[in-house]
């Protein structure tokens, strides 16, 4: 099995992965090979959303894809959301303020997903509950759009409040 040496662009940094087994998922590359352990492995099959990262601004499940496929793409993880001076992203602040988590394991995925979701929403992308024009975010639109991120502690209400507050800013 040929190994591969290639580069990933993560949070603006270029990371060289040397002699990588092609089986390594994007999630494992980010976590084990780049040391960015914010993104989490909850199911490794795209069913929980804990591994959500942003690629070219769009949210994806990093567990369900090979790292090799993302060579050269612009990848952003939870570690890349805060400002350079360490001040938190509005969503990060809002999650703390609204207690949008308990154990915190799904949280990086929730927040990355929310970043992507707000971008989709602002671009006018529809959801399954959209009937014609995209409706207001609060309520069914937000809930449908965030349903790809499971939270077993049950912080869904706080997550909603946090996202709505950040979206209003």
């Amino acid at each position: 099995m040929p190994l591969h040496t290639f580069q990933l662009q993560i949070n603006g940094d270029t990371r060289t992965l040397s002699n990588l087994d092609p089986r390594v998922s994007l999630l494992d590359a980010i976590r084990d090979h780049c040391g960015l352990t914010g993104a989490k492995k909850g199911c490794n099959q795209g069913a929980c959303g804990a591994c959500t990262v942003l690629v070219d601004g769009e949210r994806i499940n990093s567990c369900l894809t090979l790292a090799l496929q993302y060579e050269g793409r612009d990848i952003r993880t939870i570690e890349g959301l805060a400002e350079a001076d360490g001040s938190l992203h509005p969503l990060q602040k809002a999650f703390v303020e609204h207690d949008g988590f308990q154990c915190g394991f799904c949280t990086p995925g929730q927040i990355c997903s929310a970043v992507g979701m707000l971008a989709e929403y602002k671009a006018g992308a529809p959801s399954a509950v959209t009937d014609g024009e995209v409706g207001e975010l609060a309520g069914a639109e937000l809930q449908e759009r965030m349903s790809g991120n499971l939270c077993r502690c049950g912080a869904y209400v706080g997550i909603r409040e946090a996202i709505l507050e950040a979206a209003a800013q």
């Binding site: 939870i78 570690e79 969503l91 303020e97």
Partner: peptide, 12 residues
Amino acid sequence: NRLNGPDKVTGK
């Protein structure tokens, strides 16, 4: 607020 909140929202 949860004291470990900032660590949890930043992946730390």
